[in-house]
C-alpha cells in the first residue's frame, strides 16, 4: 500500500481525466437540443459507465449536423 501512496501523483491525474470527460459530457448533455435516443439514458450511461460512457455518448449520442 505504501507503493500506492507513493504513486498517488500518477493515479490522480487519470482520475481527473475521467472526471473531466464525465463533466464535459454532462454539460453538453444539458445544453444539447436532442440526442440519439432518450436523454436520460445517456445521462445514466455518462455518469455510471466509467470512461467508456462519455466516449460512447460523444460518438453515438450527439447529433451532429
Amino acid at each position: 500500500m505504501d507503493a500506492l501512496l507513493e504513486h498517488l501523483p500518477l493515479i490522480v491525474p487519470l482520475v481527473i481525466v475521467q472526471l473531466l470527460l464525465m463533466i464535459i459530457a454532462v454539460i453538453d448533455l444539458i445544453r444539447i437540443e436532442k440526442t440519439n435516443g432518450p436523454k436520460w439514458v445517456w445521462a445514466l450511461v455518462v455518469v455510471l459507465v466509467n470512461l467508456i460512457g462519455p466516449i460512447l455518448y460523444f460518438i453515438f449520442g450527439r447529433r451532429n449536423d
Binding site: V17, Q18, L21, L51, F58, N64
Partner: peptide, 16 residues
C-alpha cells in the same frame, strides 16, 4: 462538439 477536448483526453488516458 467538444472533439477537441474529449479525443485528446481519451488518448491520454489510453496511453497512461
Amino acid at each position: 462538439n467538444f472533439k477537441v477536448i474529449w479525443v485528446p483526453l481519451t488518448f491520454l488516458f489510453l496511453g497512461a
